[in-house]
Design a protein around this nucleic acid. Structure first.
Length: 630
RNA sequence: GCCGACGUAGCUCAGCUGGUAGAGCACUUCACUCGUAAUGAAGGGGUCCGCGGUUCGAGUCCGCGCGUCGGCUCCA
């Protein structure tokens, strides 16, 4: 048989030859360094036979930054970790240990709880194994045999995995450790030249909190120690972009032990907040939204009507007043439905677009709170659109236009997810078929790439979720566009159609920036704190060279302020170098130095990151106003 | 909520095996009046997260609680 190599050449091999055989046929060095075979983009173990006519590529330790090559390396590293865990902590049962983005993990049930000192011990043991030499050996077994093997080994998690597998299963062995594993794996442990165990965490077996909680050990591995160092450096860099760090350094917001999960906004942070709110309000008016304001607190009957009580009462802040059970609103929609029921109900009023940046409270589990990205008190740029069924496409389409207008403005990279019916849905399958197809249709019309998430929809409707990553690559939902046929029914909402009959409107829920808190958090990480001029709390800082220049500098500041700029004057008796450094650290977009050499026609302007030029006042104003205008 | 770690001045952090707390930056004052990323000096500042316990004595050891961080689960 023959296989085709990346350069187009054909390689003649014996029937049943493996990837490793192919590598040997090309050269001994290639065979020694080979780590995997890539065939039609799929990753395959070197030990597996090739097929006639197959296009193959052999990856080696030289492909040290190739994601597939790293995947295999880390997969093998995970097996070494399991071997080490069983050796150091006898009685440990192993669960699963896959490679992941940037590393790998393995889940164990240790006989006794372990702390972080275990990471050091395990890492040493793995190094010892690598030095000692480990080679991977692969074979296949029938399910029943595999099951018997793990029963005899006392590995209940593996037994469960075998039970859900189909047909034959494959095994890998290195040293004293045998694992049920799809592979692929390295030939031996030599290529693992850099390895670090990073953290310990609890993780539920099969991701279900009703199951036993196992101990997950996270680590990472590389072909080259330099790559590990670079990875660690990147994590350090991400720390500098952390919005919690920036919030403190730039005096934007804070948290207090006295209000967990509820940010306190400083004056500077509030400038950003208000600009965003003004902007949203203006944009809403332009797009035919009407602003409303609804209560913060409702009788639990409202939440029973909406269906939230049954599902979410544990996550609501509740209080009892004169024997009545009240709940702080965790979202605006039921309130808006209540308001709709009080408004005129002619088809001529539709689509009715109600917007409200209401204060929402959700009693999130303490363990999930995370800076501004997951809070208990927040404000969404929320809106609810009530429309006739034949208006749904136009309204959905306008929502996505609006959303992408925002994301392009902020230069965000958005991942789109279509979340479909959950198990505990309200309404009929026919309604869900209709609602889901409406969302699919609008996504298709826009040509947006998206992933589908079965079961992730809201209980009242499917949704298009718009996600963005933070500085560490963790994904956060910003926007959401939801089509809801249930709330209007539950609230008995109707409108009178042109046919003089009563109809039930459809309802579209949307938040596009999402919560302002989360948006500001993610956006700070996205920009590293270098906010665009229009959002910068302080746009220009003026530095008089010495006391003699303060008066003129003040006049200049006044003039810029007149023209609508946010200006500060730093006339402290510090050296100019120091004041410039501080302005730079505070990420002020423009610094203007005023001394002997300056005049209205020649201002010394310094932009963020040090770029300098001389500008006339008029030219500067023009530049500033262009940058500040949105 | 669960697993692990952490909680010392406004911030970043040091404080070994228990002997009642320290640095840098920030802040205040004074001097300097400065040309594009840190001028110098002096000074103020701490319920060592909280509550209990062990001890002659606890920032340090133990228990409980709260908060934060990294995960898991959850996310209307």
């Amino acid at each position: 048989m023959r296989v085709i190599l990346p350069d187009g050449k054909e390689l003649e091999l014996e029937e049943g030859a493996t990837g490793l055989d192919a590598a040997r046929a090309i050269g001994p060095k290639l065979a020694e360094q080979a780590v995997l075979v890539r065939s039609n983009g799929a990753v395959r173990d070197l030990r597996l036979p090739l097929a006639d006519g197959e296009r193959i590529q052999i990856l080696t330790t030289r492909d040290r930054q190739d994601p597939d090559a790293l995947y295999v390396l880390r997969h093998s590293a995970a097996h070494l970790l399991a071997e080490a865990a069983r050796r150091l902590y006898p009685g440990t049962m192993v669960a699963i240990g896959p490679p992941i983005e940037n590393g790998f993990y393995y889940d164990f049930e240790f006989p006794e709880p372990v702390g972080e000192e275990a990471l050091v011990r395990l890492e040493h043991e793995i190094r010892r194994q690598i030095d000692e030499g480990r080679e991977w050996e692969r074979w296949e077994l029938e399910r029943d045999e595999a099951r018997r093997y793990f029963e005899q080994q006392g590995e209940p998690f593996k037994v469960e995995l075998v039970d859900t597998a189909e047909g034959e299963v494959s095994f890998y062995r290195q040293g004293e450790f045998v694992d049920l594993c799809r592979g692929p794996h390295l030939q031996n442990a030599k290529p693992i030249r850099a390895l670090k165990l990073l953290s310990l965490a609890g993780a539920y077996w099969r991701g279900d909190e009703r199951n036993k909680q196992l101990t997950r050990v996270y680590g990472t591995a590389f072909y080259d120690p330099k790559d590990l160092q670079e990875h660690l450096d990147r994590l350090e860099e991400a720390k500098r972009r952390d919005h919690r760090r920036l919030g403190k350094d730039l005096h934007l917001f804070d948290f207090s032990n006295l209000a967990p999960g509820m940010p306190l906004w400083h004056p500077r942070g509030m400038v950003i907040w208000n600009i965003l709110e003004d902007f949203r309000r203006r944009e809403n008016v332009r797009r035919g939204y009407q602003e409303v304001r609804t209560p913060q607190l409702y009788d639990s009957d409202l939440w029973r009507t909406s269906g939230h009580w049954e599902k979410y009462q544990e996550h609501m802040f509740r209080l009892e007043i004169e024997g009545r059970d009240f709940g702080l609103k965790p979202m605006n929609c039921p309130g808006h439905c209540l308001l709709y029921s009080l408004l005129p109900k002619s088809y001529r009023e539709l689509p009715l677009r109600l917007a409200e940046a209401g204060n929402l409270h959700r009693n999130e589990l303490s363990g999930v709170l995370h800076g501004l990205l997951r809070v208990r008190h927040f404000v969404q740029d929320d809106a609810h659109l009530y429309c006739a069924h034949d208006q749904i496409q136009d309204e959905l389409s306008a929502c996505l236009d609006y959303a992408y207008f925002l994301y392009e403005l902020f230069e965000l990279e958005i991942r789109v997810e279509l979340s479909l019916r959950p198990d505990d849905k309200l309404g009929t399958d026919e309604e869900w078929d209709f609602a889901e197809s409406q969302l699919e249709q609008v996504l298709a019309a826009r040509g947006l790439a998206y992933s589908r998430s079965e079961g992730e929809g809201s209980f009242y409707g499917p949704k298009i979720d718009l996600h963005m990553a933070d500085s560490l690559g963790r994904s956060w939902q910003l926007g959401t566009v939801q089509l809801d046929l249930q709330m209007p029914k539950r609230f008995g909402l109707t409108y009178q159609g042109a046919d003089n009959a009563e109809h039930t409107p459809a309802m579209i829920h949307h938040a596009l920036l999402g919560s302002l808190e989360r948006f500001i958090g993610v956006y700070l990480e996205h920009t590293g704190g270098d906010l665009p001029v229009w959002l910068a709390p302080e746009q220009v800082r003026i530095l008089p060279v010495s006391d003699a220049h303060v008066e003129k500098a003040e006049a200049l500041a006044g003039e810029l302020r007149e023209r609508g700029m946010r200006v500060a004057l730093d006339d402290r008796s510090e050296t100019l170098g120091r004041r410039i450094r501080e302005a730079e650290l505070e990420k002020i977009p423009y610094v203007v130095v005023w001394g002997e050499r300056e005049s209205r026609d020649a201002l010394a302007v310094r932009r963020r990151h040090g770029e300098q030029s001389m500008e006339s006042l008029e030219a500067l104003l023009e530049e500033l106003q262009a940058a500040a205008m949105v």
